[in-house]
Design a protein around this nucleic acid. Structure first.
Lengths: 343, 343
DNA sequence: CTGTTAGCGCATTCAC
DNA sequence: GTGAATGCGCTAACAG
């Protein structure tokens, strides 16, 4: 830290007491206009800036909120973090945004960091925060502050959840493909996150209703225990690899639903490599409505899970809680299918 | 804020003084093992977490660093922010990452926020921080802390710059196209940032050397005063629009260099719409080496401006400065052309 | 080895 | 209107 002026320095030079300066800084009423002006001039002259740490200490309020994301490089999380940061900054809060990575240990470390900084509220982004290990950390370290989890479930008294109905969404996607005459459908996801599990049940539910037996379900999972590498590049490769496996084991597959857009785009690559026509031979659907899906060829049909709405809602909920208003424990938002060239 | 235990609470219950607890918390030597154990137990029992604000106040050190980005949604900035955050977090610093938007006023506001929090160092991402207005803010509010600017220039005693040699890079790109027999080249950028200006001079320099007169240079700029909307979607549209203008005014154009990948991808769209073959009729080159360029069709030839290296270097430089080591005032990193399907 | 004292920068009583 | 005193939670001398 450096030697910024304190209210005492200003006070001395203005020939008043520190409390007077404090009052001027905080625009408190009941101060002689002349004194106020004199103090203001000095404040300006020295570019005085109040020390928020000291302020927070005496006010018992840090005006900091935490945003925990698995990996900010994942494009829908980037967007969400952006929205929340803008919103909270506008309201005078400072955000500490941390990419936690996928291990529960790292998540716990990040929770510790936020705790030390005495954040007043937290937003958790992603279904991976809805696991037992994380729940424990939250319960231990953040029991007394409002927490909002986006696209995850966490049953704790101080946590409220806002989620897209992805199960229903994927069900509709599956039904769309069936309506188009595709029957030998596959579902692919990279990591077994709770979110992926939801999507999967939407798929299973639609398939079962359409008369597919449990044994005929083509379900492909990248790895069993969360993803090892969250970098977008890796997801792309995983999409190729999963698609390769699907096509080798079930060459007659005529439609694939991928848990995220980037996986689907990896899939498109593999399909192109094998000269399989999309959507004529194989239809493809992704999830997240990312820009990637917009620019690939053919443009990707995708499930818009409304991350933008979710993020906005999340910041509003957090704000409500911070200001003592009652908030819904769970908010659900519907999804939309954006139909483009791959179906 | 909530009622976490303080060292006084712990001290009382342990029957020792607060300083003893403080010593245990900070692993200071010279403490009776029994006392230490007893205190530790209580610390655990209550999940004690030191208040960093209080600590920072007495230590005169916040252990916070600031990261200022124009817009974290811009994919190369996302990656950079991620790298820096990971690096600094690992070293025990907490990062406050702010998307400033493009106006100098908002940038100044963000600088204020960081100042209030008494950040110990700052990383500025993007050439737009190298402008006079921002320089003023930095000089006024951050004169006493180390600042590193990535891909921008700021001549201030406490600022060090790390940049990619984009001018040279674009020059090489242009020469590449010329070598391939393309002569009627255009350059397109969205906003007139200092970075765009650098890229442009690389283009001009190569074109001039190849014998093109000043009057024959096809230079297209989106808007004259920085970009209005930094959202990626907008850049994509701008790419289309710029390309439309280029082709209408110069139908014989046979190569276009775009200031960023996403602009180039917008261009590819427009070219596809007009059924112009890439690269046969028109070659295209982007800049940034983003994932977008990897997944579009045809895959984009791009200038890798080494944002990853730059970011790593930036955090190392900041760290050096924070720890009192001497640092280079200016570091330059070379660029690479990644040749793919559009050239 | 441990406790006492003081002070980091600020806001808030309570007097005057 | 304004100032003096107090305390937020913590660390760093300085004593003992």
């Amino acid at each position: 830290m450096e030697n910024t002026k304190t209210i005492y320095d200003i006070a001395k030079e203005a020939g008043v007491s520190a409390s007077t300066v404090s009052r001027v800084v905080n625009d408190r009423p009941g101060i002689n206009e002349n004194t106020r002006r004199r103090v203001r001039e000095l404040l300006d002259k020295y570019n005085y800036s109040p020390n928020e740490a000291a302020r927070g200490l005496v006010n018992q309020s840090s005006r900091i909120i935490g945003i925990l994301i698995e990996d900010i490089r994942i494009s829908h999380h980037t967007e969400s973090a952006y929205i929340i940061e803008q919103e909270m900054t506008r309201l005078g809060y400072t955000c500490i945004t941390l990419s936690t990575g996928d291990s529960p240990e790292r998540k716990a470390e990040c929770i510790q960091i936020l705790t030390k900084r005495r954040v007043e509220g937290v937003i958790l982004m992603g279904s991976m925060f809805g696991t037992e290990a994380v729940k424990q950390s939250i319960a231990e370290h953040m029991a007394r502050i409002p927490v909002v989890i986006v696209n995850g479930l966490l049953s704790l008294p101080n946590v409220c959840c806002v989620l897209a109905d992805e199960e229903q969404g994927v069900k509709l996607c599956t039904e769309l493909l069936i309506r188009k005459g595709k029957r030998r459908l596959a579902f692919a996801c990279e990591a077994c996150t709770p979110s992926a599990a939801n999507k999967l049940s939407g798929f299973v539910s639609a398939m079962t209703q359409a008369g597919a037996g449990e044994d005929k379900l083509r379900i492909y999972k990248g790895c069993e225990t969360g993803s090892a590498d969250l970098a977008p590049e890796h997801t792309l490769l995983a999409g190729q690899e999963l698609t390769r496996r699907i096509l080798e084991e079930h060459p007659d597959t005529d439609g694939i639903i991928y848990a995220v857009d980037l996986l689907a785009i990896g899939g498109l690559r593999e399909l192109a490599r094998r000269e399989i026509a999309v959507p004529e031979q194989v239809s493809v659907i992704g999830i997240d409505n990312t820009l990637y899906g917009k620019i690939c060829t053919p443009p990707l049909t995708t499930l818009d899970n409304k991350l933008v709405d979710l993020s906005r809602t999340a910041s509003r909920l957090l704000l409500d809680a911070l200001e003592g208003r009652q908030t819904a424990r769970q908010t659900r938002i519907g999804t939309d299918i954006i139909e483009r060239g791959t179906t």
